[in-house]
Amino acid sequence: MEYILLGVFVVATIGGYFLINNVPSLLHTPLMSGMNALSGVSVIGALVAVSVVLKANNSVFAVLIGAIAIIAAMVNVVAGFTVTDRMLKMFARKGIKHE
């Protein structure tokens, strides 16, 4: 299991590293913002952890902290993708061609 996870980590890292060669600097900000949204994937971890807390014990404190994690990550995901889309929408809408 651990080796599988480490293997996935290595493969994903290599994949990610070679993925974004030659990005026009025009897209750096949206790309960064999109990747930032993706890093909100930790919401999955937060969901898992909170569910375990709920199943295992009744500590309100632990649930509360977990709830913060879910909310924070979800804000990251939703706002991240939305602002990225807002930026990209502006590029998609081509400026009125001169003449």
Binding site: T13, G16, Y17, L19, S39, V41
Partner: peptide, 8 residues
């Protein structure tokens, strides 16, 4: 996903 984002 974390690995991909971290590396890129």
């Amino acid at each position: 996903v974390g690995g991909i984002v971290g590396a890129s």
